[in-house]
């Protein structure tokens, strides 16, 4: 187990290295000169453009830029945002709690809606409850986030005045306000994932309910509730956990559209603005950070498997 964990951790390093090369290469494919966009309306002065290029090493060959960046990253320095001149590490650390909070809240909402719906639709397969649950899932998957976001703002902020329409307040500053600012975006995000979770839970539950051990359990005379919750659900959860961690990873990578609508200063907004402004150090830093989160989450998924399924605990 210890060796297994060490080996998994060891795999992270090459994964991140390969990724960093990829990001560097892909940025070169992006059209648009960073110096030009940084100069904005002041791009008229060729001397300024030359100075920007020299300062940001844009005039050097790509491999030199990469090695310089890698060297700094290895010493823990992610560089400065070209646009606002704030350290990238500080930007990431500032946004991470925001994204974590929003992602976790959305995830909880998704699980609270998706898993129970999946269970009831499997138990009452081909009954009106099943159809209704499927309808909910389909609507959840196919409603665009930006549309639902705007509708919620119009209803709860403009019409009813219950919630602030956008922005973010930290949970340490004012927990109540923090909840008020994040509940709508978390709901929008959670709903789009709830549908996916519901479909997977349903499929897994249907498989589990048709297994022999379920028939045995019923034959023993257990209540249907015990059969569904204790015997079927526990086995059905394994694929759902995998999917859940991947979806959580996606949430933590930043919910680009939703953060944009609700003006939540999280990862999604950070990276979108960075790409539009060709703020390469920020793009690199954020992608690396989210990659790390993803890798760690898939490790977590494996550990969770073991917790749920004792058969996997054998060496």
């Amino acid at each position: 187990m210890g060796i297994w964990l060490l080996r998994r951790l060891g795999q992270i390093v090459p994964t991140l290295l390969i990724l960093s090369v990829l990001i560097f290469g892909l940025q070169q494919l992006m059209p648009g000169d960073p110096a030009l966009i940084l100069a904005g309306e002041e791009r008229g002065d060729p001397q300024v453009l030359a100075e920007i290029r020299a300062e940001l090493m844009l005039d050097r060959p790509l491999w030199q830029q990469y090695l310089a960046w890698l060297g700094r990253v290895l010493t823990g320095d992610f560089g400065f945002s070209w646009r606002i001149r704030m350290p990238v590490a500080q930007l990431i650390l500032e946004k991470l709690p925001v994204t974590l909070q929003l992602g976790l809240m959305a995830f909880v909402i998704a699980v609270l809606i998706g898993v129970p719906l999946g269970i009831v639709s499997a138990v009452w397969k081909d009954k009106p409850v099943d159809w209704a649950a499927n309808g909910v899932a389909l609507a959840g998957i196919s409603t665009p986030n930006f549309w639902l976001g705007i509708m919620l703002i119009l209803l709860f902020s403009v019409q009813l005045g219950w919630l602030p329409p956008s922005g973010y307040v930290s949970i340490f500053e004012d927990p109540w306000q923090s909840l008020a600012t994040t509940i709508m975006p978390a709901f929008v995000l959670g709903n789009s994932i709830a549908g996916v979770l519901m479909r997977h839970t349903r499929a897994a539950m249907l498989t589990a309910l048709s297994q022999d051990y379920v028939r045995t359990a019923r034959a023993k005379g257990l209540t249907e509730r015990m059969v569904v919750v204790k015997h079927a659900l526990r086995n059905a959860l394994i694929p759902v956990v995998t999917l859940g961690t991947i979806e959580l990873g996606r949430l933590l990578a930043g919910a680009v559209l939703t953060e944009q609508i609700f003006t939540i200063p999280g990862f999604g907004k950070l990276i979108v603005d960075a790409v539009f402004n060709r703020d390469y150090p920020v793009v690199q830093g954020v992608v690396m950070a989210t990659a790390l989160i993803f890798v760690l989450l898939s490790l977590l998924a494996d550990l969770l498997y073991m917790a749920i399924n004792p058969r996997l605990r054998a060496p």
Binding site: I150, I153, L154, S157, V158, G161, P164, P165, S166, G167, Q260, I261, F262, T263
Partner: peptide
Amino acid sequence: YLPIPDSSVRVANLQSGA
């Protein structure tokens, strides 16, 4: 000063008094 890129969200903020 609060940056809000989406113009309809800006207006919603104005309408709601935020």
